[in-house]
Design a protein around this nucleic acid. Sequence first.
DNA 1: ACACGTATACTCGTAGACGAGTAATCGGAA
DNA 2: TTCCGATTACTCGTCTACGAGTATACGTGT
Lengths: 215, 215
Amino acid sequence: MAKRRRVGNLLALAVLSTVIQRPMHPYEMASVLRERGKDQDMKIKWGSLYTVVANLEKHGLLAATESVKQGGRPERTVYEITDAGREELKDWVRELLGTPEPEQPRLATGLSVMAALPPAEATELLRQRLATLTAQIEADRAMVAEVSKEIPRLFMVETEYDLAIRAAEVTWLASLVDELTNGTFPGLAMWQAYHETGYLPPDLAELAERGSTTE
Amino acid sequence: MAKRRRVGNLLALAVLSTVIQRPMHPYEMASVLRERGKDQDMKIKWGSLYTVVANLEKHGLLAATESVKQGGRPERTVYEITDAGREELKDWVRELLGTPEPEQPRLATGLSVMAALPPAEATELLRQRLATLTAQIEADRAMVAEVSKEIPRLFMVETEYDLAIRAAEVTWLASLVDELTNGTFPGLAMWQAYHETGYLPPDLAELAERGSTTE
DNA sequence: ACACGTATACTCGTAGACGAGTAATCGGAA
DNA sequence: TTCCGATTACTCGTCTACGAGTATACGTGT
């Protein structure tokens, strides 16, 4: 599914959701985003911001209203959202909420090539990650508790979600580390052997070869 | 932290982890990746593949060994991994496993602009997502059970992880949908009112304005 | 024997992402 | 008063990602 957006960068979504409040010039959008704490989960990249705004205008989702030349120097163009822009915003949110897309979290990628490291080292790294993650979650939970006295829950849902997911990662990780530590992880011996001898047991080597029949 | 990689595309990691087995030409790498089921979580993009391989060579992580001109036509260059490449692979895996980086899952983004839709619609979409997701997980679990008869667990860890995370999403989503459905979600009334009248309650409007003090 | 679909093996142009750099303003400290 | 560093507000060029297109070989039904 996942329709191709005319402007695909997620920063564009943030921009749209910001200018829907009132017309703004690009730098102000960035400020508002920052103020809303969006810069946390979405580092604002200056190059992208201006490109994205320009593209949104090109596709009729934003329109330039006025060029204010106030005190300071460079003309600042103020943009407002168009009807098409409002529609795009809604449609995009619909897609994001309604249809799960395959994601590719960095840990998944890491795990998929974990065998490149010897088991002991991999285990140690995962243990480290577990510790860091736990601490971070703790801190973030405290932060949320603090902030949620002022900000209504509706504007914190994504943080809640994030916390829930990370908590799940912790649980899963803890059990994996456990298996690795007490040796119950199946195939540990083979993994170890591979790093000592440099070879896989023949039956596995064959498996790893699959797909190489071409040529 | 997150050191800048000379070749940053995650496809490069997949390539490195593939050529470490034996020298290959690009198309073969893609085949092996596909055979290993990597194309599932990582659509192979042809343009990127060749660019990435070229870049890896440029940075000395891969080296061209021979140009076979066999039967068919275009010269196929076979690449082998270098020592630097092996080091980079390990280092990269270390980083991916050891240090949690802030991610930005699409649902989180969606949730952060959820207020753009009226609550009823948002709820319905989330309900939909929940259904799709549940079904997908069910199917994938069955698939894993099947495949894991042949493939050792070590090569399925990332799928397991993925399943665990998605399961957590289901749990969290279910409880959110619940709150939205039976009206216990705090701020629902205000959210609804905003979509009926087009205005936020004044105290919230003020909150939403924060950061606009510039100018 | 030949036509046609399918798999192989790429190439190239373009749109986009990004970061480092720039330049003006403002508020203090010296 | 002027000098300095921080903040504001952007610009520009590079590097990257990608998808659509291309062209040949291979098999196989008629």
